[in-house]
Nucleic acid binder design. Structure first.
Lengths: 368, 368
DNA sequence: ATTAGCACTCCGGGTCATCGAGTGCTACCT
DNA sequence: AGGTAGCACTCGATGACCCGGAGTGCTAAT
C-alpha cells in the first residue's frame, strides 16, 4: 500500500494484484502490468489533470513517495509507453496519458468517489429552489448548475417520449381556425400542439372526439399510439370524418419522440473556455462549432444513451474527429416513464472520479 | 462628381455641398469638411471594410481615381484625423476609421441601397417555405437566414406583448392539480401557462370563470390587464373566490411582457468567427460571452428598440465595454399589435449599406 | 496647392544562440 | 538483477538582433 503526498485529492484506492501473463496484447489488462506501472500511471494522470502539462520523470520522482529515482521512473515510463498507455508530444517532453491510458485508469483504477459535502449541498440547495417549476425548467436549471460546478460543457437531453404513457388528451378551439391539442403524459409532462382546421369546430363535437381519443388511446405508450393510430380510430362516426382525418395526418407530430422545443440544451461555454487547453483559437472555434451545431453531440449522446448506466467515453472512442480531444460522461435519469440523459463534455484531461460522481448524483436527484 | 474604380460596390452617392462654417465642433457636420475629405474618408472606409487592414496613403492614391499623389492624400488624412474621423493603430501604420468616422459615413454619406436580386430572392425563397409554421418558428428561421447571409451574429427578439391585445382566454384542467390557461392574442400568438390548483376544479366552474375573464378582459392590452386585473374581478361570485385569488396572484405571470420561452434568439457564431477580426483568442472569448450571456445584447436592444425605425449603433455608442468593438443594426417589425426587433451584431468594420438593407428588408418581410 | 524627397518609426518575420526540461542509454553499484 | 548516477542528445520556448517594408510627417521645390 502507499499514500499520496503533494496531490490533494486522496480519494481513490488501487487494486494492484500482479502476476503478469501474456505480455503482448493491444489492450493490456491489469494483470499484464507489474506492480509499479499502475502506480506511476496513476501519478501521471493525477498530475496531468492538475497541471495540464506533460509530466517528466524528475518531477514525478520528487512528487511521489515511491522512493524511486528519476531514472527508474523513466524505465517504468518506457514500459507504459510501449503498452500505449502514455506518450510524449515530442522527444524531449514529459509524458501525457493516451486515450488508452485514461481508459485503463477509468476501468481499473478509479473507484467510486464520494462527493464532497460542499458539492452535495450545493446541488441539494439548487434543487430546493427549482423544484416547484415544471420538468423542463428543472432540466434547464440542472444544466446551468452542472456547468457551473464542473466548469465543463453541460448537456442535458430532453426526455424521450417513446415510452411515455398517455394520460389524457384535451381539445380546445382557440380561434376559428386553430385547434389546440393538449397531451398530458403520465408523469407530469404536458405537451401542446396547434392544428389548423378549416372551420371552427363546435365544442360538443370536440368533446366527443376528445373522449373518443381518450377511450382508445389513454394508457398506451407514444410508440404504440404512433404505430396504430389510424387503426384504432377506423370506425369513427361519420360526421367527425374529416377531423379524424386531420388527427391521423398529424399523429406523428403529436406523439413524436421528442418534445417540441429544442431537444437538448448545452451550456457552459464560458466556463470551459477558462480551462488551459482553450488558450488556442482553433480549439475555441472547435467548441463554438460543437455548441452551435448541436447535432454532433446529440448524435453521440444518442449512441451512449443506449446503455442505461453511467458511461464514460474518451477521445477517439467517441468516433468523431471533432470530438477527438474531448471526453464525455453521461448518466441516465428517469422520471416515471420518461427518461433522458444528463452529461458533461470536456477535455480528456478531466478529473474523472469527481466529474463522474457529480453527474451521477445529479442524475439521481433529477430522478425524483 | 466622381466615380469609383477598383472598389466593386458602386451603389452610393455623396452629397458634398461645401461652404464651411464654424470649424471647431466635436461632431463635424458635412459642411465643415472640404470637398475632398469625405471622398477620402469614403475610400478608406470602403477599403478597410474590404480588407480589414489599415489603409495607407500610397495604396489609396493608386486605388482611387482621385488623381492625387500619396503626399496629398497624406495631407487630407491628417485633416481627417484631426477631426477624429480616422486614426492609426500606431505611428507607421495606415489609417482606420474611428467610431466617429463610421458614424459620419452612416449619417451623411450612406444612401439607401437596393438589395441585389440574389439576396432578395434568397430571402423570399426562405419565406415561402417557412410561412406555414407559427410566428415563433418564423422568427427562429429568420435569424438562421439572417446570420447565414450576413455572416454576422443575428439576434431576433421575441415579440413584446405589452401592447398585445387579448383575444380570448380558455381554461382547461389537465390533471387533478394542474390547470392550463390558454391565452390567445389578437394576431395569432398563443401562450399557455400552467397553474397549480389545490383540488380539481369542475368544468362548469372553469367555464364560468373563463367567460367571466373573457367578458372583463377581452380587447384590452396586456399592460392594461396587468394594471387593473384585481380591480376588474373584484365583484366575483363567492364560490369562485379562491380560484380568482389564484388568478390574481398569477396575473403578472400570465400577462407578462415577454413570451415564456427564451425571449431572444442569437445565432451565427460560426459564421462571424470566420471574419478576420476573430483570429484572436480573446475576441473569440468575447463573442462567446456575448452569446452565452445574452443579457448584454438584450439590454442594448431594449434601448435601441425604442426608436421605431432602422437604427445603427457603432462601437462606444452602445455604451458597453464588452460591445465596444461591435456595431449593431436593428430594425423593428410589427405583426398586428405585436412588435419585436430583428438585428445583427458584428465588427464595426461591416458593410453598412448592404447590412442595413438586408436587416430592413427582412424586418419588412416578417411584418406580413 | 501639389508633389517629390527624405528621415524616421514601427511592425513582422527571420535567424541565431541560449536555456531548461526531459529522454534514452550505458556503466556502475549493491 | 534491479536500481541509480551520469552523460549526450533532442526539442521547444525565449529573447536578442537584424532587416525589410510600409507608412508617416515634414520640408523644399514645382
Amino acid at each position: 500500500m502507499f499514500r499520496i503526498v503533494n496531490l490533494e485529492s486522496s480519494h481513490s484506492t488501487m487494486n494492484s494484484t500482479a502476476p503478469h501473463i501474456e505480455p503482448e496484447r493491444p489492450t493490456p489488462t491489469l494483470h499484464e502490468l507489474n506492480e509499479r506501472e499502475p502506480q506511476v500511471l496513476l501519478y501521471i494522470i493525477r498530475q496531468h489533470v492538475l497541471t495540464a502539462q506533460p509530466i517528466g520523470s524528475r518531477t514525478l520522482s520528487k512528487i511521489t513517495d515511491l522512493k524511486l529515482s528519476s531514472a527508474s521512473i523513466r524505465n517504468v515510463m518506457a514500459d507504459l509507453e510501449e503498452r500505449g498507455l502514455i506518450g510524449h508530444p515530442h522527444t524531449s517532453a514529459g509524458r501525457v496519458p493516451t486515450d488508452m491510458g485514461y481508459r485503463y485508469y477509468v476501468d481499473s483504477m478509479m473507484q467510486g468517489t464520494a462527493l464532497s459535502q460542499d458539492e452535495r449541498s450545493a446541488i441539494d440547495a439548487q434543487f430546493q429552489d427549482a423544484m416547484p417549476a415544471g420538468l423542463t425548467e428543472l432540466l434547464r436549471s440542472s444544466s446551468h448548475l452542472l456547468s457551473r460546478i464542473t466548469q465543463q460543457l453541460a448537456v442535458v437531453a430532453a426526455p424521450s417520449l417513446s415510452s411515455a404513457i398517455l394520460e389524457r388528451v384535451e381539445l380546445v378551439s382557440v380561434t376559428s381556425d386553430k385547434l389546440m391539442v393538449i397531451i398530458s403524459v403520465r408523469s407530469g409532462i404536458i405537451k401542446t400542439i396547434i392544428l389548423n382546421v378549416r372551420s371552427e369546430v363546435k365544442r360538443e363535437q370536440l368533446d366527443s372526439i376528445a373522449s373518443l381519443l381518450n377511450e382508445r388511446l389513454a394508457g398506451l405508450t407514444f410508440q404504440q399510439i404512433r404505430e396504430s393510430f389510424a387503426d384504432r380510430l377506423r370506425d369513427s362516426e361519420e360526421r367527425d370524418r374529416d377531423i379524424i382525418r386531420l388527427f391521423i395526418d398529424s399523429s406523428d407530430r403529436m406523439f413524436a419522440e421528442t418534445m417540441d422545443a429544442e431537444s437538448v440544451c448545452i451550456e457552459g461555454m464560458k466556463g470551459i473556455t477558462r480551462q488551459p487547453e482553450f488558450e488556442d483559437a482553433d480549439r475555441l472555434r472547435n467548441i463554438i462549432e460543437l455548441v452551435e451545431n448541436q447535432d454532433i453531440i446529440v448524435h453521440v449522446l444518442h449512441a451512449v444513451n443506449r446503455e442505461r448506466a453511467l458511461t464514460i467515453r474518451i477521445g477517439q472512442e467517441l468516433q468523431d474527429s471533432k470530438l477527438a480531444d474531448y471526453s464525455i460522461i453521461a448518466a441516465p435519469w428517469r422520471v416515471g416513464q420518461l427518461n433522458g440523459t444528463v452529461s458533461i463534455v470536456g477535455p480528456k484531461r478531466m478529473d474523472y472520479p469527481r466529474m463522474a460522481a457529480i453527474v451521477q448524483y445529479l442524475a439521481r436527484m433529477i430522478s425524483t
